[in-house]
């Protein structure tokens, strides 16, 4: 049945990671190196070896993920172990170093490792939180279906605007052309689609018009032009069409907001990997440098 990566197999890997940490702590406290504890002692080498092997193993996750036909456990088990053992790495490496820091390659590798691990923590957070948000936001529709509906509303809005006035048509057309969903990383993460402007509250918009006239947002001109139109020259029938148009556009607004948010959630669930993975490769390089320098420049 369904359970999360943290509780997988009754949190088997939490217990393993805890046992590993506890054993390291006990050994650290019992062992007297006859000097300040550091990586050069017997225990330091042992913990260092464990840590290095763990790092290599943790990085193998990326390979396991792409070995689709593999039958070495499930990917879920691997991820659960990846999280818990990765976390225990902080303690093991601290003990390995005997809490010594400095401006050198060794501490650099340690800091890189912390970046990797904490970006991983962020990943765990978004993995636990965002799926629910995404489901709630979508309300059973798929993103493609929402985009289709947006396109459809655009068509209908254009058709409607065409019957009102060429100027309105031009405005609606421009607004459609200006609607952008997705885009660069930053746009995706900000979930920006101009929805900070509430189309349905026309009066508020009218009141604020003068104040924010200099703001250049994509939707403002559309709305103000329509407000102008409503207030001024529209005949009754046109006014009705106008209202229908505004309804349509506000509906589209709602949808566009949803899509933008959906993209945002997805981006959040992916973006951290662009930090986590490259940094882990950097860590691997730093780790090799750390090991080589430890042995050659004793």
């Amino acid at each position: 049945m369904h359970d999360s990566i943290l509780t997988y197999a009754r949190s088997r890997y939490l217990w393993i990671a805890s046992a590993l940490s506890a054993a390291s702590l006990i050994a650290y406290n019992l062992y007297d190196p006859g000097g300040p504890p550091n990586g050069g002692t017997w225990l330091g080498y042992t913990l260092g070896t464990i840590g290095a092997l763990l790092i290599v193993w943790l990085m193998l996750f990326g390979m396991r993920k792409r070995r689709y036909g593999s039958h070495t456990g499930t990917l879920r088990g691997w991820l659960s172990a990846h999280i818990y053992l990765g976390t225990s790495l902080i303690l093991i490496v601290l003990l390995h170093a005997g809490f010594q820091f400095g401006w050198n390659i060794h501490t650099f590798a340690f800091v890189l490792m912390l970046f990797v691990i904490f970006s991983g923590f962020f990943g765990v957070y978004v993995y636990l939180r965002y799926p629910n948000l995404m489901t709630r936001n979508r309300e059973s529709a798929t993103r493609d279906a929402m985009l289709d509906e947006v396109a459809e509303i655009d068509q209908n809005a254009l058709a409607l605007a065409d019957g009102i006035d060429p100027k309105i048509h031009a405005i609606v057309l421009r607004s459609i052309q200006n609607t952008r969903l997705g885009g660069g990383v930053w746009t995706q993460l900000r979930a920006h689609d101009g929805s900070d402007i509430a189309l349905d509250s026309l009066h508020a918009a009218m009141a604020e018009r003068d104040k924010r006239a200099d703001m250049k947002t994509t939707e403002m001109p559309t709305m103000f032009a329509m407000v102008d139109f409503l207030a001024g020259r529209a005949t009754d029938k046109q006014g009705e069409a106008m209202r229908a148009l505004i309804d349509l556009i506000s509906r589209k607004k709602g949808l566009a907001t949803k899509v933008a948010r959906d993209i945002q959630y997805q981006a959040m669930m992916e973006i951290w990997l662009y930090i986590h993975v490259p940094l882990s490769f950097a860590l691997l390089a730093a780790l090799i440098a750390h090991i080589v320098s430890s042995f050659f420049y004793w």
Partner: peptide, 20 residues
């Protein structure tokens, strides 16, 4: 033909996919 069972379930990193 895979000894481990359905790949979709086995390759789900978070255990969201199950077959029952």
């Amino acid at each position: 033909d895979l000894s481990g069972g359905p790949a979709c379930v086995r390759s789900c990193p978070t255990g969201a996919a199950i077959r029952i």
